[in-house]
């Protein structure tokens, strides 16, 4: 199960934070700080997995942005690693050539997309097409 998803830039600014387990605010800040520290200095040649407390962080870097997922120690690492990539492909498709600024100014869209992609800490939909079409439907409603 995905415990939380973080999208942070190299400076540690949070661009998206979604928690699927109940954490207090102070705990969230601490987690964001620690995860950033944990992943930011890792060599690109290292694994994309790093242990974090009793869980593990699966992370991937795209330009200056780190996408990190905290999952259970027994979860399938590569499957989650590729789900990060799928999410990035969806963002890329939606914003056509996504960059950090898109995510900053449209952070609310990113939350919407994420809600179509992951729910209750599990993958909900793995078809890029289905999610993009769904976003189209929702835009019409606004």
């Amino acid at each position: 199960m995905i415990r939380f998803i973080l999208l942070q830039n190299r400076q540690g600014k949070t661009r998206l934070a979604k928690y699927y387990v109940p954490l207090e605010e102070s705990e969230k800040h601490k987690v964001e700080y620690e995860v950033h520290r944990l992943v930011v200095n890792r060599d690109p040649k290292f694994t994309n997995f790093v242990e974090f407390r009793t869980h593990k962080i699966i992370y991937r870097r795209y330009a200056g942005l780190f996408f990190s997922m905290c999952v259970d120690i027994t979860d399938n690492e590569l499957a989650y690693l590729e789900s990060i990539h799928l999410f990035v492909e969806i963002l890329d498709h939606f914003f056509s050539n996504v960059c950090e600024l898109d995510l900053v100014f449209n952070f609310h869209k990113v939350y919407l997309i994420l809600d179509e992609f992951i729910l209750a800490g599990e993958l909900q939909e793995t078809s890029k097409k289905a999610i993009i079409e769904r976003m189209g439907e929702l835009e019409k409603l606004e």
Binding site: M1, T54, H55, D72, I73, T74, D75, G121
Partner: peptide, 11 residues
């Protein structure tokens, strides 16, 4: 030392 996981691991 036991990890906290959503599902008890199969192993």
């Amino acid at each position: 030392v036991e990890a906290d996981t959503a599902e008890q691991s199969a192993i």
